[in-house]
Amino acid sequence: MSGRLVLALALGATVLAPLVAPTYHVLLMLPFMAYAVALLGLNLLFGYTGLVSFGHALFLGVGAYTGAFLTSVFKVRSMEVILVAAAALGALVAAPVGALCVRYVKIYFGMLTLAFGMVFYTFVLKFYRLTGGDEGMPFLRPTLLGRSIEGLPKTDYLAGPYYYYSLAVLVLATLVMWRIVHSPFGLCLKTIRDNPTKAETLGIGVARYRWCAFVISAVYAAVGGALLGPPTGNVDPTLAYWTQSGNIVFMTLLGGFASFFGPVLGAFVFIYLQDWVMSVVPFWRLIFGAILAAIVIAAPGGLAGLWVRRPSVEASSS
């Protein structure tokens, strides 16, 4: 089956889901779409630039808290304003953080991003009067395209208008990221990933390109964080904790960082598998961890890698 056909079927199923799927499963698609946006950005850094960030929950948190502040403190309910503000603040925070982090690679880069992530976590936890501390802040229901939809029950709002809004943001984010990774800029990032010395020799400003990739990935994570807020209705520091950073890196590995859509697939499998395992066994973390470890061991290229590898195997056998 060709990639385009699979993609069209997946998109069709996602569009039809609210009409045919049980409401609960439709609602589970909301964190999937939010994480998918964040993962598209993370993979620009991870899969295309070769830098593994263990602190991207910082930007998820920036996006989510931006929405919470705008809706509950500044009484700004427009989701479009929230998304733009989240993206802008994500870039603003990422600019200095990225400038410091991209001077290092491998584990040093990872540890620095982790450190900045935990600084932000501690900030939102400790500045109780500003952020609500451990109790967090309410993320009030935003308006979509200028329509308030206040009369609609929250579940119907989430499973209807908000679902399609999130899907539209995901599609738009995917198209933009597709354009980025297939542009000369994307090609330069891949060159830097594969051989930074050669890239430098070719005249590519390695640090500058890495910084740009970092800022773009932060913008995506912040937009994803803003999308995560309305379904829960409350934003709290656990969104910015290092385990969140670990989860999104794991989603990327699970789906396959070598594939453009791999991280998106990883987010989908992670969320639905976790949901299922949580309901089946009380000690679900043990089982879930074992299942995920088994998948990664059996498929080092991620789930997308299994599918991509098949044609070459068939070709070699023929």
């Binding site: 609960y24 379904p231 709290d236 949580m278």
Partner: peptide, 12 residues
């Protein structure tokens, strides 16, 4: 667990 996941379990 955390607010986000617990809200999801509640809805389930």
């Amino acid at each position: 667990s955390n607010p986000k996941d617990t809200v999801e379990r509640y809805r389930k």
